[in-house]
């Protein structure tokens, strides 16, 4: 029983991080209709920003976090304005944008390797803590914080999307960009805003994972694959769907290692990714031709 509880808790922790990444990825996808794989860079760069601000420059922890989140959001806007928009203005296809985004992901990964070396960096704000016991499973205070904070942020995002005019405009652009334009919504402004919010969420994921594990240059690539898989499972252009899909992925991965060796954890999520792409590309809760299936 304790083992099952432990696996579920581990699944929730992983799912929380994936969900933060996937929510931003989906938000950006829904308003821009291309896959921003460099979203993974936002996660890893946030980890390194926090490492720089807090561990190297000794800026107070919460201020370091705030700076990190804001800068990561700004990074997303910069990529939108200076990479994707110019490409879109030249009528680049979504494939070109996709390739550009993968190029950015590689570029940032290499830049981080050059600046910080390939070795693992420890932020060291949270001392290795004794886990508390929950249903026989052990969970550290940081892990509890990860689960609660993600949950809170995702609810906040949901509220924002559903009940504010800006969120409504984002949903409108996701639904029908042309119509949004002829009623006077500035789609570039809205798209930039979704890059800011999405990237900031990725930044928070980067901070949390940086605190929980460590920071290393390839971590962004690893996480965007997971976030993408979660989004595909839930429905890539439907933010709540991709959030649920990510929690599901976290749980499946971690409960899966009850049955298969833990080394196959990543293979399991890849298998899921392919199954969904092949048989249910709109995801479990995705929007298909205007109808939420």
């Amino acid at each position: 029983m304790a083992v099952v509880a432990q696996l579920i808790i581990n699944g929730l922790i992983a799912g929380s991080i994936y969900a933060l990444v996937a929510a931003g990825f989906s938000l950006i996808f829904s308003t821009n209709k291309f896959m921003h794989f460099a979203h993974g860079s936002s996660v890893v760069i946030a980890g390194y920003l926090l490492f720089t601000f807090f561990s190297l420059w000794h800026i107070p922890f919460y201020l370091s976090c705030l700076l990190t989140v804001v800068l990561t959001g700004v990074l997303g806007v910069v990529l939108h304005r200076f990479v994707y928009l110019p490409l879109e203005k030249k009528n680049a296809s979504t494939v070109v944008l996709l390739i550009a985004s993968i190029g950015l992901l590689m570029l940032f990964q290499n830049l981080l390797q050059i600046i910080f070396s390939a070795s693992v960096k420890t932020i060291g704000y949270v001392q290795v803590a004794q886990g508390v016991s929950l249903f026989g499973a052990s969970i550290t205070p940081l892990q509890i914080a990860i689960i609660l904070l993600s949950f809170f942020l995702l609810i906040l995002l949901y509220w924002f999307m559903k009940y504010t005019a800006l969120g409504r405009n984002m949903r409108a652009i996701a639904d029908n960009k042309e119509l949004a334009e002829i009623i006077g919504i500035d789609h570039i402004k809205v798209a930039s805003l979704s890059f800011f919010i999405g990237s900031a969420l990725a930044g928070i994921a980067g901070i949390l994972i940086g605190l929980e594990q460590n920071v290393y240059p390839t971590m962004g690539t690893m996480l965007i694959v997971k976030g993408f898989t979660g989004a595909v499972i839930g429905g890539i252009d439907f933010v709540p769907g991709s959030i649920l899909g990510s929690y599901l992925l976290g749980l499946i991965e971690n409960i899966g290692i009850w049955f298969i060796p833990s080394g196959y954890k990543d293979a399991l999520s890849f298998a899921l990714l392919f199954i969904f792409l092949l048989f249910r590309p709109q995801g479990l809760f995705g929007i298909n031709k205007g109808v939420r299936k």
Partner: peptide
Amino acid sequence: SYVNQGRVIFSNLTVRENLEIGAEL
């Protein structure tokens, strides 16, 4: 104001939201 061809509306927004967004400006 322009109503384009094809009775185009935001199908994933509520009826009220479709109207309110019309008054966005």
